[in-house]
């Protein structure tokens, strides 16, 4: 007996679109910031007070250009998305434009992030 319903991938796909992706990324980036800042504070304590090798190595990783690409992406996304949430919460009548607001947010994010990363890569090439 075969199922009459279509239970393929279509069934589990939640069509939330852009705002749903932003919501999920906001949670993931928030947890990532907590993890990063928490570890960085603790490793800075051990580096500063005890000169620990492991803590120094961890902070060297955090200071590297590749790690900064990730951190800047995460923090900039979380900050811009948080600003969108705050604005929509303060003026609830704007909530019907939340799809447009999410597009606007990416429209601000992509040039800001792209410009920062481009300058960092150019500086790295000049210096190295």
């Amino acid at each position: 007996m075969a199922l009459k319903r279509n239970v393929g991938l279509k069934g589990i796909k939640y069509r939330g679109g852009g705002p749903m992706l932003a919501w999920a990324l906001h949670r993931i980036s928030g947890l990532a910031i907590v993890l990063f800042v928490g570890l960085h504070v603790i490793s800075s304590f051990f580096m500063q007070q005890l000169g620990s090798d492991i803590a120094t190595a961890l902070n060297t990783v955090y200071e590297s250009i590749y790690f900064q690409f990730i951190v800047i992406f995460i923090v900039l996304f979380h900050a811009l998305n948080g600003l969108r949430v705050i604005i929509l919460d303060l003026w609830p009548q704007l909530i019907k434009f939340q799809r447009e607001a999410t597009w606007l947010q990416w429209l601000i994010f992509i040039p800001t992030y792209g410009m920062t990363v481009t300058i960092m890569i150019l500086n790295q090439l000049q210096g190295g």
Partner: peptide, 16 residues
């Protein structure tokens, strides 16, 4: 200051 250090300073203004 290069832009990476400026970003780090903006997130957290520590002299290190």
């Amino acid at each position: 200051v290069d832009i990476g250090a400026l970003a780090r300073w903006t997130f957290f203004p520590n002299p290190n």
